[in-house]
Nucleic acid binder design. Sequence first.
DNA 1: TTTAGATTTCAATCATTACTGAAACTTCTA
DNA 2: TAGAAGTTTCAGTAATGATTGAAATCTAAA
Lengths: 181, 181
Amino acid sequence: MHFGEMGSRWGFNRTVGQMYALLVISEAPLSANQIAEALSVSRGNVSMGLKELQSWQLIKQHHIAGDRKEYYQSAGTIWEMANKVFEERRKREMDPTLSLLRGIILENPDSPEEVYAQQRLQEIHDLLETISKWTSELQQMNPDTLGTLMKLGSGVGKVIDMKNKLIKPSQKKEIKTEDAK
Amino acid sequence: MHFGEMGSRWGFNRTVGQMYALLVISEAPLSANQIAEALSVSRGNVSMGLKELQSWQLIKQHHIAGDRKEYYQSAGTIWEMANKVFEERRKREMDPTLSLLRGIILENPDSPEEVYAQQRLQEIHDLLETISKWTSELQQMNPDTLGTLMKLGSGVGKVIDMKNKLIKPSQKKEIKTEDAK
DNA sequence: TTTAGATTTCAATCATTACTGAAACTTCTA
DNA sequence: TAGAAGTTTCAGTAATGATTGAAATCTAAA
């Protein structure tokens, strides 16, 4: 039930959230009817929900010999599931905004107000782009390294300082400039 | 308009999104009436929206001498704004789930199915907690260091390896174990 | 203390999104 | 190729969320 409520915050609707939670905590694959019954929800609703979960690649089908029904299971590890959710959200929440902002920034300002507006939008664009690129790179990393990085927490700052100290002063200056940009 | 549409994905409603966008791109502070007029939206709606933006600490009031109206401006840098949004979303999207999961995990399982379900929920809990802690630590970091970290991208993996190599073998082993946990 | 300018509240309405269930469709078997 | 078992679609309806606007409230100046 809670995953249903949270579902709406996480980008899918109540039923889809409940369905996914159910499949995650159930070791045995479930049929569409079992899901509908467990959640007291219509068969049609389950059908649409399964379709959406499949489009997110969060579940997989499972055939049982001699049974014509389809059975469904959650797919992949928890990490993979989190990755899918992040990816989908980046697509929905950042990409459209980035391309819109790019368009506006290229327009020719007609007034001082528009110059100011473009500057602010440029800042937002740059930040969004940095975050978008970074998170997508993080997702490419292997989970172990990423785990190490996360456990390091803000301690990573010290590691970065250490790295800077190891670089020759001439190069160091160059990098500092780049960071400030 | 676009920020209105995206608003719903970002955790606030259409009008609130439009209002905030307007305040961000406008250099001059605006009165509630100006906002209502610019967006063709009712005065009451603006009042509620301003209240919400204030609760997110995204805008600040601005008095003009000899004028009884209140004027509003976006508050803080783009970074601060992003921080507020992340923080609020962590609160809404992760914290309630974390505490619910903790509760369920402490319950006594009545069957093998429940044992399995608890295991899966434990995994989700641990991942969520790691991400939650990590993102909150990142937000504590100063923007420059964070910027460096982001620009480093997945290259941070190499820095971490480098760090591990610099540590004496005896310690290295210890850290590896900790990471694997 | 009055009052006019301003803001806030909230019941009613409007708009959007989710859900149901019956009909249409698909697929497997005999 | 018929028909039974299963799945999907989608028009209609229910539930939820957003918006309006008039009334209540607040506040500063005289």
